[in-house]
Design a protein around this nucleic acid. Structure first.
Lengths: 202, 202
DNA sequence: GAAGTAAGTGAGTGATTACTAACTTTTATT
DNA sequence: AATAAAAGTTAGTAATCACTCACTTACTTC
């Protein structure tokens, strides 16, 4: 329950707001997070928030933008650092899991946005990110096919869907058992099964 | 937009309420479904709902109970009908996907319940169902190991987690693309990769 | 067909919510 | 140090929500 110093410059206040929402989402239903709760978390009054954001939706939009930027750059770094396509997939997977464990509120916000009926800017950003993410995974898989690591007959799109589902399954487990740390131990074991499903038969 | 006949007996009204919620959840965020929306969907006034349910939460509880009963019995049937553990897993998977396509609101309600911070009766029921589901899958996997279909070195718990994640990944795809039917075509291809990951090497 | 009961209506109520605006306090500038 | 601009406070408002209750309508049973 960190209380930020008063009278922050606008840019920093916006950043602090985003972080407050992400921290709150770790233990609360994203849809139920009120502007009052966000303000209290920051040691601020509710009205102050609206000096920096015109609407509550715009706060969530900023949160999603924050997530997209951080997550995608982490994933990109992991992919570049790897020595082979298969190694890249594993690094991306583990980087993603690390990110989720560090920010447990993130997958809940992402999924919460996808649930919305209306096409808000935040929802569109989430959809765009997930599409891009899927394409990136599909590229790595295709490269793996060329390098001989990945089965040539693999249906790349289906495998990319399963990649995301693998992570989503772990997140669900953490929600079932109410324990995020669990994911870290389960992740490598689950990924091993996934990689066995896509690898080239020896 | 079906409007149910007026003056239903209590039991049927409760049933109709549950179905109305599930239909609404196909196109709306479950958390945002109001009692007014439910009543309108049924061609009823809002007050009438509270003749049959003491609180809104109790409505969601009834919905979850409905889902648990239907889904688990479908899964059980599929498992029994199969000729081998591996065939059972595939039948269970496809039965589950069929259920989701027939009732697209269901996974959204399930996940929405998991998101809640408080331990409501509905959330507990969802957690219990998913645990039972996971155990059932783990049993089938263990039987597969004995029958020689499934790799003996497979980590059964991780494989059960991945099984659920596989379905969850497909659901996410449908939310990204806004098209539930898609799932049906993708399901067999995704399952093929999963089964390759757990099968005994030939 | 009269009487009793179950189901539905309609007009509320209080609580909560996002958002506003007049005012105060802090920070930055000269 | 004086002043302007930025950031925060306080006390609202209108809208929405779950829930209530006195009353009305339909069904059931003898």
């Amino acid at each position: 329950m960190r209380s930020t110093a008063n009278y922050l410059p606008a840019e920093e206040r916006r950043e602090a707001t985003v972080e407050a929402v992400i921290e709150l989402a770790a233990h609360a239903n994203p849809g139920d997070i009120t502007t009052t709760a966000i303000a209290v978390k920051m040691g601020l009054t509710q009205g102050a928030l609206f000096r920096h954001f015109p609407t509550k939706d715009s706060i969530l939009e900023a949160v999603v933008d924050w997530v997209v930027e951080r997550l995608m750059s982490r994933v990109q770094e992991a992919a570049v650092a790897a020595s082979s396509p298969m190694a890249a997939l594993e690094l991306v997977f583990l980087a993603h899991i690390d990110f989720v464990v560090a920010h447990p509120g993130v997958p809940r916000i992402i999924f919460g946005q996808l649930q919305h009926a209306e096409q808000t800017a935040a929802k569109r950003a989430v959809q765009a990110m997930l599409r891009r993410y899927g394409q990136r995974i599909a590229e790595l898989l295709a490269q793996g096919q060329q390098s001989g690591e990945v089965d040539k007959q693999l249906e790349v799109d289906a495998a990319a869907t399963l990649f995301i589902g693998t992570i989503q399954g772990l997140v669900m487990q953490s929600l079932i058992h109410g324990d995020v740390q669990r994911i870290r131990a389960d992740a490598p074991r689950v990924f091993r099964i996934y990689s066995r499903g896509i690898e080239c038969a020896q």
